[in-house]
């Protein structure tokens, strides 16, 4: 049985779904952030798979940019979480309800 594009896309979708449920169900901000990373890299898998099975290189090059953006995003996001922790001394999202009401 040969592995075709659909197999890779199913893996990508499942990875995205796992990250999605992590974002919905976790309470810890850092865990939510890791699940966001999962969602992001699942999209890179889809890009690379499409690029490979189409015989082009553009998807692969695009993944470079995705990785760069991801690195920048993680740096800024973690800095925000640390700043938040300094202010509120917690990273549990249920206690971060300043904007409620």
């Amino acid at each position: 049985m040969t592995i075709c594009l659909n197999h890779y896309l199913v893996v990508s979708v499942l990875l995205f779904a796992l990250g999605f449920f992590g974002v919905l169900l976790r309470k810890n901000t850092l865990a939510i952030y890791m699940c966001l990373e999962l969602m992001l890299i699942s999209s890179t898998l889809a890009l690379v798979a499409f690029s490979h099975f189409n015989g082009t290189l553009d998807g692969n090059v695009f993944v470079f940019f995705v990785l760069t953006i991801a690195a920048a995003e993680v740096a800024v996001g973690l800095a925000i979480i640390v700043a938040l922790y300094r202010q509120r001394l917690t990273v549990q999202i249920e206690e971060l309800n300043e904007l409620k009401n």
């Binding site: 796992l18 810890n28 865990a31 890791m34």
Partner: peptide
């Protein structure tokens, strides 16, 4: 990939 991703979601220890 998927197994460890599931563990990322399910693990209580960060």
């Amino acid at each position: 990939t998927l197994g460890s991703a599931a563990l990322v979601v399910a693990n209580r220890n960060t």
